[in-house]
Amino acid sequence: MVEPIVKYRNVHKAFGDFKVLKGIDLDIFPAEKIAVIGPSGSGKTTIIRMLMTLEEPTSGDIIVDGTNLWKMEKNGELIRANEKHLRDVRGDIGMVFQHFNLFPHMTILENCMSAPIHVKKEDKNEVRERAIQMLERVGLGDKLNNYPNQLSGGQKQRVAMARALVMRPKIMLFDEVTSALDPELVGEVLEVIRDIARNDDMAMVLVTHEMDFALDIADKVLFLDEGVIAEQGTASEVIEHSTNERLQTFLHRFRSV
């Protein structure tokens, strides 16, 4: 049997006294496409930010490829991970943000090249070739030397995806990557994600409000509610056969919009 590439085990997260996640257990398998849905404030973003090391769990374990992400061993004891440990473990994870977070002082091409060169110490020419390839794949081969502020929102988000892909992650995290976009630009970004989902063999976790799209490409759907995974399964299991009332209300509201 295939081992999960990521395991969440009884993960809790609180901001101060405010408990956001109350015991998350989740397996992510290689090449698996997971959609995370749920009401606003249910902790969807927090789940993937903890995996990206942007947020530290209050308790519980996140295991990436057999290694505990937030804890490391020292003299036989598990202690809080330091920066070096986090860097060693998170190398296989990439993320695309709601607000793109492109580097405004770099061209599109430089945005895609800086991390492979500085972080992975790869050969510059090789990286350049790969970055250009990736930018062509997302349809921006003609914008290589433009700066981010010269692009539309949809174009920016496609650059952000190329930038993450050039790092060849085994797991890609998407946090509502279309919700900051004008409606007419959503389609082009979803197309790129669909293309990645079909043709790349990395695991993907998509937090999204694009319900139909998510259900279309996801192998597994998680419904997050009140700090726990209230429902999970294939799209049809979750959508059509679930008896969870809050899920039905949630879906109903989306359908009617």
Binding site: T53, R87, G94, N101, F103, S114, A115
Partner: peptide, 24 residues
């Protein structure tokens, strides 16, 4: 978000400062 994007690209603390934050 700039720091977060740099972390997502696995840059070290020093690289984040040198390549992303400082030039801006």
């Amino acid at each position: 978000g700039q720091t977060e994007a740099a972390i997502a690209l696995n840059m070290s603390r020093f690289q984040r400062m040198r390549i992303i934050i400082f030039p801006q």
